[in-house]
C-alpha cells in the first residue's frame, strides 16, 4: 500500500446514484469503451468516439530527468487528436530549469504554431524571481498572444506568500491573462537527489485570491498534496483545478460533490503522465451529462474566454 493522497476521507460523501446518472454512465461507457469490457483491451478503436476534450495541462519539450514517450510535439499532438482533444494548453518543461525563459517561451510559441495549429495553445512560463520578468510577461501577452502564463513556484524557489508572487499575479491579471500555478510536477518521493523540488504549499493562495477577485487562477497538479478544506477554500474564491493528480477510486465524482461544478477542468499532465489516466477518470465516476460536458470542455472554454 502506498497512498499519499488522502483526498478520500475529505471528499467522499457517498449516497445513492440516481437512475439518470446510471443511464448516463452507460451512455458514456458505450461512447468511450476504452476498458468497458474485460475481453476488449484495445483503446484505439473507441478513441475517436469519446467526448471532445480540452486538456488544460500538457507540456512540450523534454522532462529534465528522463525521456517521456511522447516528448516530441508531433507525437503528443497525434495522441491528443486520437483521443478527441480539440484544444490543449501547453506549457514547456524547459521552464523548470532554464533561466532564459524568453527563449523558452519563444520556442514554445513556435512549436505550437508549427506542429499544433488548431489544437495547441501556448501558455508561457513566468518566473517572478528572475530579473525583468515583466518583459517575459509582456512578450507572452503581446508578442506571442498567449492567453495565459504558467508558474512553477517549487522549481523556481518561492512561496505563494512571497510578495513576488502577488506582483506577478496582479501584473498578469492586469493583462487579463489566465494564471496557471503548478504545485509540482512529480511525486516528491521519486525526485532526483540532485534536484529536489518539493510540491509548493498552496495554503496562502486562498487569502491572496480573495484580495484579487478579478484574477483567473487554475491550480495544476494540485491533488497530490492539496486536500480537504484548503481545496474547498480555494474553490470558494474562484480557483479552478484539473484532474491529473486526483486519486482515490471514482475521485472525480466525489470531488464534484464538494466543489462548485465549474471549478474542475480536464487535465492530463501529458506527456509526463500517461494521457489515458485522466481520460479513464471520466469513466470511473458516475457523472451526469452536464458534469461530463463541464469537465470535458465547457469549464475550460469559459475560463479562457472570460
Amino acid at each position: 500500500m502506498n497512498q499519499p493522497n488522502a483526498v478520500a476521507a475529505s471528499f467522499r460523501l457517498g449516497g445513492p446514484t440516481t437512475a439518470l446518472a446510471r443511464l448516463n454512465r452507460r451512455e458514456f461507457i458505450a461512447a468511450t469503451a476504452a476498458v468497458a469490457v474485460a475481453s476488449s483491451i484495445t483503446t484505439d478503436a473507441a478513441e475517436t468516439k469519446s467526448p471532445a476534450l480540452i486538456d488544460t495541462n500538457v507540456s512540450l519539450s523534454r522532462w529534465p530527468f528522463r525521456r517521456c514517450p511522447l516528448d516530441d510535439t508531433p507525437s503528443l499532438v497525434a495522441k491528443l487528436r486520437g483521443h478527441n482533444v480539440t484544444q490543449a494548453w501547453a506549457g514547456t518543461f524547459d521552464a523548470l530549469l532554464h533561466k532564459d525563459l524568453s527563449s523558452a517561451n519563444a520556442r514554445l510559441a513556435d512549436e505550437c504554431r508549427r506542429h499544433g495549429k488548431g489544437i495547441l495553445v501556448p501558455i508561457g512560463a513566468l518566473n517572478p524571481t528572475l530579473p525583468n520578468w515583466e518583459e517575459d510577461l509582456r512578450r507572452c501577452a503581446e508578442q506571442h498572444k498567449m492567453p495565459g502564463v504558467r508558474l512553477h513556484p517549487n522549481f523556481h524557489g518561492y512561496k505563494l506568500d512571497d510578495p513576488l508572487f502577488e506582483r506577478a499575479l496582479v501584473a498578469a491579471t492586469e493583462r487579463r491573462l489566465l494564471v496557471q500555478i503548478s504545485l509540482g510536477e512529480e511525486d516528491d518521493r521519486t525526485q532526483s537527489a540532485l534536484a529536489k523540488a518539493p510540491s509548493a504549499d498552496a495554503a496562502p493562495l486562498a487569502a491572496i485570491l480573495k484580495q484579487f477577485p478579478k484574477a483567473r487562477v487554475q491550480v495544476l497538479n494540485a491533488f497530490r498534496t492539496l486536500r480537504g478544506k484548503p481545496v474547498l477554500d480555494l474553490a470558494a474564491v474562484g480557483a479552478r483545478f484539473e484532474i491529473a493528480t486526483l486519486e482515490i477510486v471514482a475521485g472525480v465524482g466525489e470531488l464534484l460533490k464538494q466543489i462548485p461544478p465549474d471549478r474542475l477542468c480536464f487535465g492530463s499532465h501529458a506527456p509526463f503522465y500517461y494521457f489515458e489516466s485522466a481520460k479513464l477518470k471520466l469513466q470511473e465516476s458516475d457523472l451526469t451529462p452536464a458534469q461530463l460536458a463541464a469537465l470535458s470542455h465547457d469549464n475550460a472554454r469559459k475560463l479562457l474566454t472570460v
Partner: peptide, 25 residues
C-alpha cells in the same frame, strides 16, 4: 492500490503504454 488510488491512473500504465497488445493481456 485502490481505493486510495484510482483504478484509472493505474490502468493507464497499461492502456497507455507503447507495448504489444499481447503484453498488455
Amino acid at each position: 492500490d485502490a481505493g486510495g488510488r484510482s483504478f484509472s491512473s493505474q490502468l493507464a500504465k497499461v492502456f497507455g503504454a507503447n507495448i504489444p497488445e499481447s503484453a498488455k493481456k
